[in-house]
Amino acid sequence: MLKRYEVSRYNFSDNFSVKVNLARGYRAPNIAELSANGVHPGTNIYQIGSDQLKPEFSLQQDIGFVYSSKYAVIQLSVFNNTINNYIYNQKLLGVNGQDSILVPGNQTFQFVASKANLWGGEFSVDLHPIKPLHFENSVSVVNAINKGTDGKAVADSEKYLPFIPPVHGTSELRYNFNLEKSGIKNAFVKVQLEYYASQNNVFSAYGTETPTPGYSLFNAGFGGSITNKKGDVLFNVYVMGNNLFNLVYWDHLSRLKYFYGDYKNPGSNDNPREHGIYNMGRNVSLKIDFPLSYNLKKSS
């Protein structure tokens, strides 16, 4: 549940405006967080819940700036969010200091709660020197600090909250066009670069999380609508290619990063305990959809 209150919005001119918001949020722990006790399929973890979890309460402040003109749209937004009883996953260790293994091949995690502070922002620029040409750029940043619980100091290895996305940026050059005489409209062709910075602010305690190196992905695509002589859309077709240079990388938020290659003996010298599954390589997709039009009116 999220209650948002718009404190102030002011238009300095037709091109520039500022908006300030205050939001109060509430979320009760879900059934998995309370009562899970078994292997979570597809994640390589044995998940344990906790019936001691309390509802999350958050207070967020954010401010946004928007500048819009004939040739550019520039937006900047920043936020600060304080959360009580923030629920997250923490890895469990056995009495000997090694991983707690309840089911072979699966690491053991338990849901815990702490005070947290998250802040960051997003900056975007859309330049269009001519109407059909767009050069869109954006960057987003999230920082997340684990404030711990009352009366308990937070160790350096627990300073950051786990599984927080790294700095992420995109740059896209897109050209929109229509070829009505050829029966094509709402067409586009684009190239895109996605950038993910390395994420070193991790919850390293108990081996819960490890740093992830940065990477860049190159994507491209084109598409449009095919019409009949009347201009009605017959179907839409899109061709998209992601990671065209077939880069080998790990997504910091992917659980597959923590799969081991040797389940029987993940710590053996022949197959050291390292990340086992990378993210998707080169991927080209074709999508065709056919719009449906119908009239529900009864004939007279």
Rank of each mutant, 00 (worst) to 15 (best):
V233Y: 01
D232S: 15
L2E: 09
A144I: 03
N30Y: 01
N15W: 08
H252R: 12
N283G: 05
I130E: 00
I288F: 00
P104S: 07
S13N: 10
E194M: 09
F177Y: 00
S58C: 06
G49E: 04
I101N: 01
A205R: 11
A205P: 12
A144C: 08
Y260S: 14
L244G: 09
L102Q: 07
N269W: 10
Y249E: 05
L102W: 00
G223R: 01
N85P: 12
F235H: 11
S58A: 09
N236Q: 07
N96D: 11
S124G: 08
K181T: 11
P166T: 07
T212N: 07
G148E: 02
I288P: 06
N219Y: 01
I48Y: 01
K70Y: 03
N44G: 15
S35M: 08
G224I: 00
P266T: 08
A23K: 04
R4H: 10
V112K: 01
S293W: 02
R4N: 13
K3V: 15
G267F: 02
N106R: 04
Q192D: 06
H134P: 14
I63A: 14
N84L: 11
N44A: 15
G223I: 01
S17D: 03
V248G: 07
G148P: 04
M1F: 06
N228T: 04
L256C: 12
R255A: 13
Y86R: 09
D62S: 12
G120F: 01
L53M: 09
Y195M: 09
F12P: 13
W250G: 12
G38E: 02
N176H: 06
K257C: 00
Y263T: 15
M1P: 13
K19W: 02
A36K: 07
V18S: 02
N243R: 01
P104A: 04
R273M: 13
R9Q: 15
Y175W: 00
I63K: 08
P166G: 04
I164K: 04
V248H: 06
E274V: 10
N96S: 05
D51I: 12
N85S: 08
N236L: 02
G267V: 04
S225I: 00
Q75I: 10
